[in-house]
Each structure stands twice: as C-alpha cells, then as structure tokens.
Amino acid sequence: MRFSPFIDGLWKNNGVFKQVLGTCPTLAVTTSVKNGLGMGLATTFVLICSNAVISMIKNIVPSKVRIPVFIVIIASFVTIVDLIMNAYLHDLHKVLGLFIPLIVVNCIILGRAESFASKNSVFSSILDGFGIGLGFTLALTILGSLREILGNGSIIGINIFGGSYSPAIVMILPPGAFIGLGFIMFMIAYFEKRKKN
C-alpha cells in the first residue's frame, strides 16, 4: 500500500509506545501539553527533512561513513529548527530551548535513517518520517496531557478543576513521567492482548 509507511509509523511502529525509543525527550519535556506538542512537531520536522535527504543520497554515501554523514545532516536540521524557533516562536523556545539540541541524539531519528530512509525511496521515506513524527507527537501529547491534568490541574494552561483541586505535584516532577509512561504502555499492551484473544 502506498501510504502504509505513514500508517505504520503512526501506530504500529510508534517510536515511544512500541519501540520505546526517544525516551529522553519524552520523559523530560512532557510536563504540559504545549511542551509535548512543540517538541513533537519540532522532531517531526527534523525527521521528515533528514529522512528525505538521507534517502536522496543513500546510493552515494559509502556505508563505512554513513553514520557520521547521517549525524551531520540531522544536526544541521536541528540547528536550523533551533534558530528558526528562537526567531519566530520565541516564547516556546524559552521553554523548550534546553531540549531542542537533544533532538540530535533522539534515537528515533537515527533509527529511521538507518532502518528506513537508507533503504527506501524518497517518497516513502518522507511518509515514514511524517508518520513516525506524528506518532511521536501523539505520544508526547498524550503523556503531556495526563501529566498536566493530574499534576497541575489544567489543560493547555486552562484550569479545569477550579481552585479547590490540589494537584498531584509528583506528576509534573520526573517520577511522574516514568509513572505516566509506564501506565500508558500498560494500558496499550493490555487492550491489544485482549483484542488478540
């Protein structure tokens, strides 16, 4: 199927929930929906660009030096995103700034370059980058909303419980990230297993 790389990337190969890759940004930035969404979209952009370029040059890059070449390409796109975000989305950059350079070492990106873009056509590599990127964004947004609702009593910055709710602060602290991610992965595994039986 023509669009299957996109669908697969979005759910079946979901970087966070299924392959458990890229957990560093997943755990670190998901204190709110906005942060998760911003990080996810920045990563998606880098993923699409790096997948496209790597797939374009896959036949001329000698396999012995492919990793350094991939890293140079990925790092360049990350720096470009960093600069553009700082210039045009300054407030979001203030929050995510520290984590943007970390996109370089997000295993999802190098993983897709290695296992997909270096073996497939430009078109399906872009689709794959798009799917995996949106899957990553989805995962970060789900975890971000869970943590923001429980840990801060708000969603996208809007208070939903009113003043009397005292939030479970642990959810926006680092342990909350592990608890939240573990819980979501448990739910997914549970329902998928039940469906199979």
């Binding site: 040059i57 001329i60 890059v61 000698p62 012995k64 030096v65 350094p68 070449v69 140079v72 390409i73 790092a75 360049s76 720096t79 470009i80 600069l83 553009i84």
Partner: peptide, 22 residues
C-alpha cells in the same frame, strides 16, 4: 577517496545552510 570527499561535501553543504539560516 569516497570515504573522504562524500562526508566533506555533505559537511560543506551543511555549513553553508547553517550559515545562511544563522
């Protein structure tokens, strides 16, 4: 030789793009 000049070319293009964005 490919091992040398392919990474060099890629790095040069990357440097140019970065300088432009900056």
């Amino acid at each position: 030789l490919n091992l040398i000049y392919i990474p060099a070319i890629v790095s040069a293009i990357a440097a140019f793009l970065l300088a432009f964005t900056f």
